[in-house]
Amino acid sequence: MGEVTRTVTLEGSESGYATTRLDALLGWARKYSLFQYPFVTACCGMEFMAAVSPRFDVARFGAEAPRFSPRQSDVLWVVGTISQRQAPVLRRIYEQMMEPKWVIAFGTCASCGGFYDNYTTVPGLDKIIPCDVYIPGCPPRPEAILDGLMLLQDKITNGDRRPGVVKPRLDPVHPGAQGAGDLVTLRKSGKEKPAKEQA
Protein backbone atom coordinates (compact mmCIF):
# COMPACT_ATOMS: atom_id res chain seq x y z
CA MET A 1 0.00 0.00 0.00
CA GLY A 2 2.99 2.25 0.36
CA GLU A 3 2.85 3.23 -3.31
CA VAL A 4 -0.29 5.26 -3.06
CA THR A 5 0.38 8.94 -2.49
CA ARG A 6 -2.75 10.58 -3.86
CA THR A 7 -4.36 12.96 -1.40
CA VAL A 8 -8.06 13.34 -0.90
CA THR A 9 -9.99 16.03 0.85
CA LEU A 10 -12.23 15.47 3.83
CA GLU A 11 -14.72 17.91 5.14
CA GLY A 12 -15.35 18.49 8.77
CA SER A 13 -12.29 20.03 10.37
CA GLU A 14 -12.10 23.56 11.72
CA SER A 15 -10.79 25.10 8.57
CA GLY A 16 -13.31 23.41 6.38
CA TYR A 17 -11.13 20.64 4.95
CA ALA A 18 -8.42 18.24 5.89
CA THR A 19 -5.96 16.41 3.76
CA THR A 20 -5.00 12.82 4.16
CA ARG A 21 -3.37 10.11 2.15
CA LEU A 22 -5.50 7.36 0.77
CA ASP A 23 -3.82 4.67 2.78
CA ALA A 24 -4.36 6.61 5.96
CA LEU A 25 -8.00 6.99 5.08
CA LEU A 26 -8.25 3.31 4.34
CA GLY A 27 -6.53 2.50 7.59
CA TRP A 28 -8.93 4.74 9.46
CA ALA A 29 -11.87 3.06 7.80
CA ARG A 30 -10.55 -0.43 8.34
CA LYS A 31 -9.74 -0.09 11.96
CA TYR A 32 -13.36 0.46 12.95
CA SER A 33 -14.81 -2.36 10.91
CA LEU A 34 -12.73 -5.36 11.77
CA PHE A 35 -14.35 -8.64 10.96
CA GLN A 36 -12.86 -11.21 13.19
CA TYR A 37 -12.31 -14.91 12.90
CA PRO A 38 -12.07 -16.37 16.40
CA PHE A 39 -9.90 -19.49 16.19
CA VAL A 40 -10.86 -20.59 19.67
CA THR A 41 -9.22 -23.71 21.00
CA ALA A 42 -8.75 -23.52 24.73
CA CYS A 43 -9.21 -21.79 28.06
CA CYS A 44 -8.75 -18.31 26.62
CA GLY A 45 -12.01 -18.81 24.79
CA MET A 46 -13.81 -18.25 28.06
CA GLU A 47 -12.30 -14.80 28.37
CA PHE A 48 -12.98 -14.20 24.71
CA MET A 49 -16.65 -14.91 25.40
CA ALA A 50 -16.51 -12.45 28.26
CA ALA A 51 -14.94 -9.80 26.05
CA VAL A 52 -17.59 -10.22 23.39
CA SER A 53 -20.47 -10.13 25.85
CA PRO A 54 -22.11 -6.92 27.06
CA ARG A 55 -19.93 -6.08 30.01
CA PHE A 56 -16.71 -5.55 28.10
CA ASP A 57 -18.21 -5.39 24.64
CA VAL A 58 -15.74 -5.31 21.79
CA ALA A 59 -18.59 -3.91 19.71
CA ARG A 60 -17.53 -0.50 20.96
CA PHE A 61 -14.45 -0.89 18.80
CA GLY A 62 -16.28 -1.94 15.70
CA ALA A 63 -15.14 -5.51 16.05
CA GLU A 64 -18.23 -7.30 17.23
CA ALA A 65 -19.02 -9.31 14.14
CA PRO A 66 -17.42 -12.75 14.14
CA ARG A 67 -17.16 -14.36 10.76
CA PHE A 68 -16.62 -18.05 10.82
CA SER A 69 -15.29 -18.08 7.34
CA PRO A 70 -11.67 -17.09 6.89
CA ARG A 71 -12.45 -15.57 3.52
CA GLN A 72 -14.69 -12.95 5.05
CA SER A 73 -12.55 -11.88 7.95
CA ASP A 74 -9.73 -9.42 8.54
CA VAL A 75 -8.46 -10.33 11.97
CA LEU A 76 -7.54 -13.83 13.03
CA TRP A 77 -7.77 -14.18 16.78
CA VAL A 78 -5.78 -17.21 17.78
CA VAL A 79 -7.32 -17.94 21.15
CA GLY A 80 -5.64 -20.72 23.05
CA THR A 81 -2.99 -23.37 22.81
CA ILE A 82 -1.91 -24.53 19.37
CA SER A 83 -0.99 -28.18 19.43
CA GLN A 84 1.17 -29.79 16.79
CA ARG A 85 -1.91 -31.49 15.50
CA GLN A 86 -3.75 -28.18 15.21
CA ALA A 87 -0.88 -26.39 13.45
CA PRO A 88 -1.68 -27.37 9.84
CA VAL A 89 -5.29 -26.33 10.37
CA LEU A 90 -4.24 -22.93 11.65
CA ARG A 91 -1.87 -22.30 8.79
CA ARG A 92 -4.48 -23.30 6.27
CA ILE A 93 -7.00 -20.91 7.76
CA TYR A 94 -4.45 -18.12 7.69
CA GLU A 95 -3.68 -18.83 4.05
CA GLN A 96 -7.35 -18.71 3.17
CA MET A 97 -7.80 -15.22 4.57
CA MET A 98 -7.84 -12.28 2.18
CA GLU A 99 -5.35 -9.46 2.37
CA PRO A 100 -5.14 -7.26 4.28
CA LYS A 101 -5.15 -9.57 7.27
CA TRP A 102 -3.95 -9.27 10.81
CA VAL A 103 -3.29 -11.87 13.47
CA ILE A 104 -3.68 -11.47 17.19
CA ALA A 105 -2.05 -14.00 19.50
CA PHE A 106 -4.48 -14.18 22.38
CA GLY A 107 -2.93 -15.39 25.58
CA THR A 108 0.40 -16.82 26.56
CA CYS A 109 -0.08 -20.20 24.91
CA ALA A 110 -0.74 -18.69 21.51
CA SER A 111 2.13 -16.24 21.96
CA CYS A 112 4.87 -18.60 23.08
CA GLY A 113 3.42 -21.90 24.18
CA GLY A 114 3.15 -20.87 27.79
CA PHE A 115 3.99 -23.46 30.38
CA TYR A 116 3.13 -26.26 28.00
CA ASP A 117 6.75 -26.65 27.04
CA ASN A 118 6.42 -30.20 25.75
CA TYR A 119 6.13 -32.68 22.94
CA THR A 120 2.73 -31.61 21.73
CA THR A 121 2.56 -27.84 21.86
CA VAL A 122 3.75 -25.37 19.25
CA PRO A 123 5.83 -22.77 21.07
CA GLY A 124 3.95 -19.78 19.79
CA LEU A 125 1.94 -19.29 16.66
CA ASP A 126 4.68 -17.13 15.10
CA LYS A 127 6.48 -20.38 14.46
CA ILE A 128 3.81 -21.03 11.86
CA ILE A 129 2.23 -17.77 10.75
CA PRO A 130 3.12 -14.08 11.14
CA CYS A 131 1.65 -12.30 14.11
CA ASP A 132 0.82 -8.62 14.67
CA VAL A 133 -0.19 -8.29 18.29
CA TYR A 134 0.64 -10.46 21.25
CA ILE A 135 -1.65 -10.29 24.27
CA PRO A 136 0.02 -11.86 27.30
CA GLY A 137 -1.96 -13.38 30.13
CA CYS A 138 -3.14 -16.82 31.03
CA PRO A 139 -5.82 -16.01 30.09
CA PRO A 140 -5.63 -12.25 29.51
CA ARG A 141 -8.17 -10.15 31.30
CA PRO A 142 -10.78 -8.52 29.08
CA GLU A 143 -9.11 -5.16 29.68
CA ALA A 144 -5.93 -6.54 28.15
CA ILE A 145 -7.93 -7.87 25.22
CA LEU A 146 -9.32 -4.42 24.57
CA ASP A 147 -5.83 -2.99 24.88
CA GLY A 148 -4.67 -5.49 22.29
CA LEU A 149 -7.48 -4.53 19.97
CA MET A 150 -6.66 -0.85 20.35
CA LEU A 151 -3.00 -1.54 19.73
CA LEU A 152 -3.95 -3.34 16.55
CA GLN A 153 -6.12 -0.39 15.51
CA ASP A 154 -3.16 1.92 16.03
CA LYS A 155 -1.03 -0.34 13.91
CA ILE A 156 -3.64 -0.41 11.17
CA THR A 157 -3.82 3.37 11.16
CA ASN A 158 -0.08 3.68 10.95
CA GLY A 159 0.45 0.85 8.52
CA ASP A 160 2.84 -0.70 10.99
CA ARG A 161 3.32 -4.43 10.48
CA ARG A 162 5.95 -4.98 13.14
CA PRO A 163 4.79 -7.24 15.98
CA GLY A 164 3.66 -5.47 19.12
CA VAL A 165 3.10 -6.64 22.65
CA VAL A 166 0.40 -5.36 24.97
CA LYS A 167 2.14 -3.75 27.92
CA PRO A 168 0.91 -3.93 31.47
CA ARG A 169 -1.41 -1.14 32.48
CA LEU A 170 -0.68 1.38 35.17
CA ASP A 171 -2.64 0.69 38.29
CA PRO A 172 -5.36 3.37 38.15
CA VAL A 173 -5.94 3.27 41.89
CA HIS A 174 -2.31 3.44 42.98
CA PRO A 175 -0.48 5.12 40.11
CA GLY A 176 2.72 5.27 42.10
CA ALA A 177 2.75 1.56 42.80
CA GLN A 178 5.92 -0.44 42.43
CA GLY A 179 7.53 -0.55 39.06
CA ALA A 180 5.03 1.84 37.55
CA GLY A 181 7.79 4.13 36.33
CA ASP A 182 9.15 1.45 34.02
CA LEU A 183 5.90 0.69 32.35
CA VAL A 184 5.10 2.18 29.02
CA THR A 185 1.46 2.91 28.48
CA LEU A 186 -0.21 1.34 25.56
CA ARG A 187 -0.88 4.39 23.44
CA LYS A 188 2.68 5.61 23.58
CA SER A 189 4.15 2.29 22.55
CA GLY A 190 1.73 1.93 19.69
CA LYS A 191 2.62 5.22 18.07
CA GLU A 192 6.33 5.59 18.57
CA LYS A 193 8.12 5.14 15.28
CA PRO A 194 5.93 4.51 12.26
CA ALA A 195 4.73 8.10 12.05
CA LYS A 196 8.29 9.18 11.36
CA GLU A 197 8.90 6.38 8.92
CA GLN A 198 6.04 7.41 6.75
CA ALA A 199 6.71 11.12 6.90
Binding site: Q84, R85, A87, P88, R91, D117, N118, Y119, T120, T121, V122, D126, K127, I128, I129, P130, R162, P163
Partner: peptide, 19 residues
Protein backbone atom coordinates in the same frame (compact mmCIF):
# COMPACT_ATOMS: atom_id res chain seq x y z
CA UNK B 1 11.75 -36.85 26.49
CA UNK B 2 9.06 -34.38 27.44
CA UNK B 3 10.34 -31.71 25.09
CA UNK B 4 10.87 -33.81 21.99
CA UNK B 5 8.45 -32.41 19.45
CA UNK B 6 7.51 -33.95 16.12
CA UNK B 7 6.05 -31.06 14.13
CA UNK B 8 3.59 -31.82 11.38
CA UNK B 9 4.56 -28.73 9.41
CA UNK B 10 8.00 -27.12 9.39
CA UNK B 11 8.42 -24.06 11.53
CA UNK B 12 9.12 -20.73 9.90
CA UNK B 13 12.73 -19.66 9.95
CA UNK B 14 13.82 -16.30 11.22
CA UNK B 15 14.77 -15.30 7.69
CA UNK B 16 11.22 -15.94 6.53
CA UNK B 17 9.69 -14.15 9.43
CA UNK B 18 12.06 -11.18 9.48
CA UNK B 19 11.76 -10.98 13.25
Amino acid sequence: PAQKTQPLIPYRTEAEAGV
